[in-house]
Design a protein around this nucleic acid. Structure first.
Length: 250
DNA sequence: GGCCAGGAGGCCT
DNA sequence: AGGCCTCATGGC
């Protein structure tokens, strides 16, 4: 079981399109098309997809534990059941969240697609993979700006120049990994946390944005995210989505 | 309907 | 503390 709409369209990934109940994207150079009904069968026969959707992880146990800690969080989990944390490509995720700053989901998705169409490989009719660092090396700041990337253009180019450091992140603990990611221009604490949670599966990392600040404001007893350790990142995802869709109401 | 100001899942100098 | 690309949105 999975909540595809919330998992794929609510700010974790910018690669997916929705048409009715059908979701499609290019993952690992293949076009993937899914509905919630075909999901179980699709991942069962496909190791790449199974990993992408994090099927082996113990969500039931983690969510049960989180629900036992706090009633509000329990309600959020019950209501938005089966949000999953994806195992996305670190490079694509890094660029995506550099694009995300001072931006909304619709525009981030649009920029993601623009980069794919301009520099990515066409893997099927009308479907383009996210460009590799090697492919993006051809990009100029002027070209990026003309696509609408704006002042983030120089950040993208700095990430291209330093993309090899993404390999080293796997070996580092959360704090050191965050510091290393922040050596890329345009990557601060928030963007680094998004990369760690959504690409490196660091389940205890919490991206703090304006929505999560609002959660903290409305729930002063959340004195520290350590409350939800070692699953604070998963807790964040439920609290974040609930806050965005229903405000402070429980 | 048209105009304009402030915001949008931050970060740099 | 201000500025930054650009676009959708809401207030007037």
């Amino acid at each position: 079981m999975i909540n595809l709409e919330t998992t794929l369209l609510c700010g974790q990934s910018f690669a997916w399109r929705q048409e009715g109940d059908t979701y499609s994207a290019v993952v690992a150079n293949r076009v993937i098309t899914l509905t919630e009904k075909t999901f179980v069968h699709a991942v069962a026969s496909d190791q790449t997809l199974s990993h992408y959707f994090d099927c082996a992880w113990h969500y039931d146990e983690a969510e049960e534990y989180l629900a036992s800690i706090d009633p509000h969080l329990a309600a959020c989990i019950a209501q938005h059941r089966s949000i999953r944390i994806l195992n996305q490509d670190p490079w694509e995720t890094t660029i995506s969240f550099i694009l995300s700053q001072n931006n909304n989901i619709a525009r981030i998705t649009q920029l993601h697609r623009a980069l794919c169409q301009r520099w990515g490989s066409e893997v099927a009719e009308g479907f383009y993979a996210f460009p590799t660092a090697e492919q993006l090396r051809c990009a100029t700041e002027g070209e990026l700006r003309s696509l609408g990337v704006g002042y983030r253009s120089s950040y993208v180019l700095d990430a291209v120049a330093n993309h090899e450091l993404l390999q080293r992140v796997w070996e580092l603990d959360d704090l050191k990994a965050s510091h290393l990611l922040q050596t890329i221009k345009g990557v601060g604490a928030k963007v680094a946390a998004c990369i760690l949670l959504f690409a490196y599966h660091r389940m205890n990392v919490v991206p703090v944005d304006t929505w999560i600040e609002r959660v903290q404001l409305n729930h002063p007893h959340y004195t520290s995210w350590d409350l939800f350790s070692p699953y604070a990142g998963l807790a964040q995802q439920y609290l974040f989505h609930h806050e965005r869709t229903q405000g402070g109401a429980v």
